[in-house]
Design a protein around this nucleic acid. Structure first.
Lengths: 194, 194
DNA sequence: CAAAACCGCAACAGCAGTGTTGCAGATATT
DNA sequence: AATATCTGCAACACTGCTGTTGCGGTTTTG
């Protein structure tokens, strides 16, 4: 079952796939409507080669999303969301995800695509995130009255926002601190309570 | 100066413009790559009529953005951002903006378009928002150490997020409360301090 | 009511993007 | 070294969207 259904690709072909996916990310992030031609050019490859590796434009984008969401899921798991203390895990995951999402911003920009292999990955990430937030709430890190779904969406939005402005230049840990801090305390006045 | 450079449109033509803009919002919100044909059909109008009123696809989208941003600016001003108490103004503006942005989500989805008439409107809205937040900080509503730019972007993101999920069905005031509350306090545990 | 403006309809030209095929030469695999 | 695979290139058909023009009929305006 672990063996691929199709015969394994030759080394250079596999490299082409990688290069094309990376180029697609760059080009489509700059212009979501960009053509296969532009992707091919950015990859330093002929347009026909792109079509050889990916049956259609749709297939390319789906493959891109799947590749990225796999890395994202890995980034989440690396933060040990179900064993480490919630605050620690939250910080680690945030830093990891910021790194991945910075590199694959386009590929990860359509979580709700319906009917793709990537959808499953998104559900896993979403579930893990909810578990973590639930644990955080149980341990008193989050207010008992918060809506976890809403909190998760706010968390996603903060991550997305942190990657856009000038602060995106900061090192990942500082950024993660900003995101987590904002998520937990907002912008209101601190009452000396940490 | 106040008189239009072009001769005033006939009543039915002006109505066409409005109908087309509303249809464009609906159609493009569902699919940003939708064709003029689809817009025309949704508006109950021939495709050529769309082209008669808007020189090009680009012009249509620009007009749509401008119309929406004008309403947005109005919604902000209605909240009296520079006279009312910050918290009151913040709540009112949030409710107003949620209403407008709910109706024109596509038209308002590209604040940084560069080189359009709408850009000026966006700058005005952004400036007003910053002023308000600055006043809120001066009066102790926001923490003295917060970055106003970051706070503003978080505010925008929260508004955008509030319009997507299930909570979007709630009445505008409850929604505004959720947004403002999250902005000020985040999701962390409340320390009994209001 | 008469002029002007607007609309729908049909037809057209043009263009850009997609996806396919065939072949000759380069590259990896055994 | 022999074979299978991959690539670039050129060409092609096809589709869908844009933008334009002209005309006959309708609606607003003054």
């Amino acid at each position: 079952m672990a063996e691929p259904a199709v015969r394994r690709l030759r080394a250079d072909a596999e490299r082409s796939v990688r290069v094309i996916l990376e180029a697609a990310e760059r080009v489509l992030a700059a212009d979501p409507g960009a053509s296969m031609e532009q992707v091919a050019e950015a990859a330093g490859v002929a347009r026909t080669t792109v079509h050889r590796r990916f049956a259609s434009r749709k297939a390319l984008i789906e493959a891109l999303a799947e590749s990225a969401v796999r890395q994202l899921a890995e980034a989440v798991e690396d933060g040990r969301p179900d064993t480490a203390p919630p605050l620690v895990s939250l910080h680690r995951i945030t830093a990891n995800v910021l790194r991945i999402k910075g590199a694959w911003s386009y590929a990860l920009s359509r979580p709700d695509d319906e009917g793709g292999t990537a959808a499953a990955g998104w559900e896993q990430v979403g579930a893990r995130c909810l578990e973590l937030l639930g644990r955080a709430r149980d341990e008193g890190l989050l207010d008992a009255s918060v809506d976890l779904e809403w909190t998760r969406r706010v968390y996603y939005a903060l991550i997305g926002e942190a990657l856009h402005g000038p602060e995106a230049q900061q090192d990942p840990d500082a950024l993660a601190t900003l995101v987590v801090d904002t998520l937990l305390h907002g912008a209101g006045r601190r009452s000396g309570v940490n």
